[in-house]
Write a protein that binds this DNA or RNA. Sequence first.
DNA 1: CAGCCTGCCTACAAGTATTAGGATAAAACC
DNA 2: GGTTTTATCCTAATACTTGTAGGCAGGCTG
Lengths: 189, 189
Amino acid sequence: MTRAGITPERLVQAGAELADSVGFDEVTISALARQFGVKVPSLYSHVRNSHDLRTRIALLALAELADRSAAAMAGRAGKDALIALGNVYRDYAREHPGRYTAARLRLDPQAAAASAGPRLSQMMRAVLRGYRLGEIDQTHAVRLIGSTFHGYISLELAGGFDHSSPDPQQSWIRVLDALDALLRNWPIE
Amino acid sequence: MTRAGITPERLVQAGAELADSVGFDEVTISALARQFGVKVPSLYSHVRNSHDLRTRIALLALAELADRSAAAMAGRAGKDALIALGNVYRDYAREHPGRYTAARLRLDPQAAAASAGPRLSQMMRAVLRGYRLGEIDQTHAVRLIGSTFHGYISLELAGGFDHSSPDPQQSWIRVLDALDALLRNWPIE
DNA sequence: CAGCCTGCCTACAAGTATTAGGATAAAACC
DNA sequence: GGTTTTATCCTAATACTTGTAGGCAGGCTG
């Protein structure tokens, strides 16, 4: 019998595309086997188990996100950088909802450390170099920005803004404006 | 054989508790049947299917959240109200992580309309009465606050702040401060 | 007390995850 | 080029989940 030529990479790629089209939760070993025209147990030569597969998709998503972020951030600072980073996250989530969800998968510490996650954190800190914040306030600010980005994107993705005006795009711009204003004028207690 | 005395209410309650202890995704008809010492198909007399069960848990969570919010908001305004509402969300998520996750389940339009969701929206808008915002800006602000609350809580719940100082509690306070400052000084374009 | 309904049951079908072990195509080696 | 090895795919089997169909009997209703 001719071999299907499956590799872990092709599996992860197909898994990522499947996630984007039917949702990350629906990414299943069986569905992938069907797609490759192969029996289910065959995939266990390439991937340890379901969790392993999902983790790899998460790693792919994190890497793609970090790459896009780095490209967008290059040569920008201050509000420009903030907007660029925000748009990278939001656009990625809209283009690849399944992968964006995957990127939020909780990784075990070692996998997390080896992932592109730290690179993303650095990008966030880089944005803050354009604002004058103390060491500790920088951490608070990273958390605020991360929360706001993620919160907005996840609500928008879940359809939370579907049935109400005004245009989410407008709100997004206002959110970025608001974050910038906040960082420029960080409240000191 | 003696009857187990199962009702939809008891099922949903047990499901909510199960969600809090092992995660909303792990709430399964089988697990509940085991817990009630009953065969799996028996539960289908009380609940239409798995989706129905999950929806009901979501409705319970939304109602609890709305009740707590209403209680906390009574007699408060401005920053006080903002902080109270934020803490309700955060505390609820920490006490009942499974239910909080359930509350974010996407409901079909009719279920959503009949849920406590609208009550929660009203609460959010009530907070904004303490700040002077135009009609449209109010919607932007609702989205910003909702995003920030949800984003922060979901990152904290996912353990995103686990391995870095400072204390998340401090960051949370700063986030609330920041939101208040922002609303008081809403950027006009 | 008779009958009916409801709450639980058994039996079954289908989908998914995972392990064990076998067969063979393709690659590696002499 | 032939042989050995390895990796890829297979069948078989177990277990768990959802869901449907239909049966039996405990307890309420007339």
